[in-house]
Design a protein around this nucleic acid. Sequence first.
DNA 1: TAGATTGTTAATCGATTAACAATC
DNA 2: TAGATTGTTAATCGATTAACAATC
Lengths: 212, 212
Amino acid sequence: MEERKISAAVIRRLPRYFRYLSDLHEQQVERISSKQLSELMGLTASQIRQDLNNFGEFGLQGYGYNVNYLRDEIRKVLGMDKINNMVLVGLGNLGQAILRYNGFAGKGFIFRAAFDRNPTRIGTEIGDLRIRNINELNEYLDSHDVDIVVLTVPKGAAQDIVDSLGERNLGIWNFASMDLVGRPGLTIENVHLSESLMRLSYCLKHERKMDE
Amino acid sequence: MEERKISAAVIRRLPRYFRYLSDLHEQQVERISSKQLSELMGLTASQIRQDLNNFGEFGLQGYGYNVNYLRDEIRKVLGMDKINNMVLVGLGNLGQAILRYNGFAGKGFIFRAAFDRNPTRIGTEIGDLRIRNINELNEYLDSHDVDIVVLTVPKGAAQDIVDSLGERNLGIWNFASMDLVGRPGLTIENVHLSESLMRLSYCLKHERKMDE
DNA sequence: TAGATTGTTAATCGATTAACAATC
DNA sequence: TAGATTGTTAATCGATTAACAATC
């Protein structure tokens, strides 16, 4: 499927395209040109066409792009044309908030189980999920089809959990403020909130607008 | 103070340098060369030296960098050599989690007030903060020195709040999954969790390792 | 058909890497 | 002094922008 090597910069922009196209679709917009989209998103039309053509020829000369079709193609490219099964580990404040947020399910990202090591939490329910003992994580992964493990544990615990995951192919959505040591089969995406806040602080101090 | 134009790529890396240097400092490491740091962080030594020299000459030939000194300089560059006063708007799951997280205060980012529009929340306490009515936000900003407004409201409400902030100079840490329309004086940093999750999905599907 | 807009090649710009003189 | 490692210039690489033929 892959032909060219897709750059990190393009991958970073893809979900944003998806969001804009979803919004347009919701507003019943049927077609859009790269020019129009570029003005909406603050990019150049050239860049949009280059980006999209990494993945196929989605447009029509003289017409532009069909919003719904393009959205659907990007959806596929992003691997969102299927259910992504997730489990969450670590039910502190952030873990609970992520688990309770209902914006992911609509995009096909569904929480199937939640784990913690704190005995006072185990057995309690959040939403419709009963909190399980972290010890049961591997057993659960053996018997269920899990795509993504969400790590909302303290940074001291994160690497141990990753190391305990065996040889499985998994995505790790890491909220611990550290860089995990991975291995083949693991795909790690970091959400480093503190670093985002520091960038804001930098931009504030230096009056620097950050281009998306 | 600014001489060269600092690129977005450099700014994105700065907080990560700060994190690694903080970790090294905690481990009592006194000095480090760009070579050593590059191996630790998965960058090239060249890039590290280039990055740092945007802000000054922090090293010593034949020696490398003093960890504590370099950390402190980057801290200043990031605008973290002072207290950053924050208020939070929107006490849903995520807002409460962010407010309760105690990792920001240690870096000088301190929550001074929290606002919501839901009458059942107003007046209750989270941590040591009493939730205030969102109507009082402007009054509060008039009488207090606030640097950063954290927006953890639904996307339908986010732009209205931004528009209501008047002419003030503020940083906006935006968790709503939309791009805010800013104005001079506002510095916006977005945390788009859904987009991060989609990137993970993409990388999973395409077996793509994302270089930090 | 004429006008619009794509897909794509070529040109430009900027970021990363390599190399090395300066110097601790 | 000899060895190490910086700061910085030059070379390379890659990403963005511009241009335009193809074509709806």
